[in-house]
């Protein structure tokens, strides 16, 4: 078993916060879609964190789902 699987705290230290709407909106397309890794330039783990943060912000109506 790898060490990374048992360290969820490391994932939280990535620094992407769902409350930072200005930062998150940089990775949103014109119609509200999350940009791909190719366009965001993130690593796989950081892209997952970005996705999670955007979805949390959408749930709290901090960001819109569409455009």
């Amino acid at each position: 078993m790898s060490a990374n699987k048992n360290e969820p705290n490391r994932r939280r230290e990535s620094g992407i916060d769902y409350k930072d709407v200005d930062y998150l909106s940089r990775f949103i397309g014109p119609q509200g879609q999350i940009l791909s890794r190719r366009r965001s330039g993130f690593t796989a783990q950081r892209q997952k964190d970005l996705k999670q943060a955007i979805k949390r912000a959408r749930h709290l109506a901090l960001m819109s789902f569409v455009g």
Partner: peptide, 10 residues
């Protein structure tokens, strides 16, 4: 934390 306009109505 803040008072703001919602991105969609709830």
């Amino acid at each position: 934390w803040d008072e703001r306009r919602l991105s969609y109505s709830i």
